[in-house]
Computed example of a mutant assay.
Amino acid sequence: MIKYRMIREGAARAVPGLEFHEAMPASDGELALAHHPDYVARASRGELSATEQRDIGFPWTPQMIERSRRSSGATIAACRAAFSEGIAVNLAGGTHHAYADRGAGFCVFNDSAIAARLMQAERRASRVAIVDLDVHQGNGTASILARDDSVFTLSLHGENNYPFEKERSDLDVALPDGVGDDDYLVALAAALDKLQADFAPQLLIFLAGADPHEGDRLGKMKLSMAGLAARDQAVFSFARLHKIPVAVTMAGGYGRDIEQTVAVHVQTIKLAKLHAIDWNNGRGD
């Protein structure tokens, strides 16, 4: 959990001109856009079973549920801000293993699915794409949105990594253990081309996981810092080319050296800031 404080402090030092805002907690009604009301109520009251808490990966506390609500609220806020700024970043989020009726894999509520549906309800965008570049498949997101043609789920992930029983996204790109920069970037470029050809989104929610990094304990991929910068730039350039607002979430990162994981996330934020300037300068193109 210390990672998130370190990301904020690192971003404040490394990226001049950022505006920081405290996230508001997502309401029961907002959470219910992606989750069963019974699950929201039981999670909020601390009534999750021992098995449900074990699946999530940490025990229930009032602070845990408050943080989970605010993590979803931050993705909502980032999506709203992206429509005026071009890009905005949640310094946490990317909780893509949470299903409609349960949490899993350190994820309580699925912030991307919630925010996507709320942006549609607010009539900001009718077509939303979730571009999930965490090393693990966004199984909860795929499940929640499986029958929703208005949200496109794209996941590049490790074929042999958690979750071992995958769901079906709109576009899954399963990559082998040890994949490096070049092969990853080729696969990403093809996936983004297909996303635009098949869907033409009006908003991107980008899960910029740090866990594809070669130093990650759980990732099994071999992307360098330069490769991850090229990954982020590919997404941001795609969005700028097609004039699509982008909300970024940090998603996973489990480096052997936590400073390295934080450096990957801060690099994403640096590139996002540059993209925001370029996006705003180029709005009239």
Score class of each variant (00 low, 15 high):
18 L>N: 02
12 A>C: 01
75 T>V: 13
106 F>I: 07
18 L>I: 08
31 L>P: 02
94 G>K: 08
80 R>I: 02
18 L>M: 10
75 T>I: 01
14 A>L: 09
70 R>M: 06
88 A>R: 03
42 R>P: 00
45 R>V: 03
86 G>M: 05
17 G>K: 09
36 H>E: 14
24 M>Y: 02
82 A>G: 07
69 R>Q: 00
54 R>Y: 09
88 A>P: 04
55 D>C: 11
89 V>N: 05
17 G>I: 04
18 L>A: 02
14 A>R: 15
43 A>C: 14
101 D>L: 04
43 A>S: 13
106 F>C: 00
74 A>Q: 08
55 D>W: 12
36 H>C: 09
47 E>Y: 09
12 A>S: 14
107 C>L: 00
92 A>E: 11
82 A>T: 06
53 Q>A: 14
54 R>P: 01
84 S>C: 03
42 R>A: 08
89 V>A: 01
69 R>F: 09
77 A>Q: 14
95 T>D: 11
90 N>I: 08
25 P>F: 10
70 R>H: 08
27 S>F: 09
42 R>I: 03
88 A>H: 09
21 H>L: 14
108 V>D: 01
76 I>D: 04
78 A>R: 03
42 R>Y: 06
60 W>D: 01
56 I>G: 01
23 A>H: 04
70 R>K: 15
90 N>V: 10
80 R>M: 07
79 C>W: 08
81 A>Y: 01
77 A>T: 10
100 A>D: 01
61 T>N: 06
101 D>Q: 13
87 I>C: 15
63 Q>R: 13
96 H>S: 11
12 A>R: 15
19 E>A: 12
51 T>H: 11
53 Q>N: 06
13 R>V: 09
40 V>L: 07
46 G>L: 04
48 L>G: 07
88 A>I: 08
20 F>E: 00
60 W>H: 12
103 G>F: 09
27 S>H: 10
29 G>H: 10
65 I>T: 04
29 G>R: 12
99 Y>R: 13
60 W>R: 07
13 R>S: 13
